[in-house]
């Protein structure tokens, strides 16, 4: 039984919490697994450090927080500096290779991808950056399937927004494709 303890971190406005909700919802609703999403936040709506925890499991989950992630997503330097020390030995850290300069001194695998740049080139704006990260995360770890994520996106977004989000998801998955199937351990 594999248990994904995902800690997603970045700054307010990057869509970190939305990304976490979609990931957990995909696992819970569309794969029938147990999933819990929670978040810790400060008084700021924009800027500041944002963190959201997702646990996905085939069995019950009681303690809802992630203390030691086996999968860390870091979208700012501040976030990576703060949370990298928490990562479980052998875990994986997905970060944006342009936004984050990873100081990898822990026993974990750092995986940088130019997601922000790719989204900017493809869409000319960064609104769907978080969905691209989600695609990369799914491709990299197999925590949930791309199909489930697509279904979760479809239920959450209006048809007009869905297509862009779907493209962003696939863009992320493609970026991660060369590294796909990376085991957490």
């Amino acid at each position: 039984m594999e248990r994904y303890r995902v800690l997603m971190s970045g700054s307010g406005g990057q869509g970190v919490i939305t990304m976490a909700i979609i990931l957990a919802e995909a696992a819970c609703i569309y794969e029938g697994r147990t999933a819990i999403q929670s978040q810790s936040y400060g008084p700021e709506a924009r800027g500041g450090a944002t963190r959201s925890d997702v646990i996905i499991s085939d069995g019950p989950i009681f303690f809802p927080k992630v203390l030691q992630p086996n999968c860390l997503v870091a979208l700012t330097n501040e976030a990576s500096a703060k949370y990298l020390p928490l990562i479980r030995p052998g875990g994986i850290c997905l970060y944006d290779s342009d936004l984050v300069q990873l100081d990898m001194r822990v026993d974990a695998r750092g995986q940088g991808l130019p997601m922000h740049r790719a989204v900017l080139e493809e869409f000319g704006k960064v609104q769907v950056f978080n969905i691209c990260v989600l695609g990369a995360l799914a491709g990299l770890t197999g925590a949930v399937s791309l199909q489930s994520l697509e279904l979760a996106l479809k239920s959450r977004f209006a048809p007009a927004q869905f297509e862009g989000n779907r493209k962003a998801l696939l863009l992320g998955a493609m970026l991660a494709a060369p590294l796909a199937g990376a085991s957490l351990y």
């Binding site: 919802e25 819970c28 147990t34 999933a35 819990i36 999403q37 929670s38 978040q39 809802p64």
Partner: peptide, 9 residues
């Protein structure tokens, strides 16, 4: 705050 804000099934 924890049970109020966490999401689950």
């Amino acid at each position: 705050e924890v049970v109020g804000h966490m999401r689950e099934r």
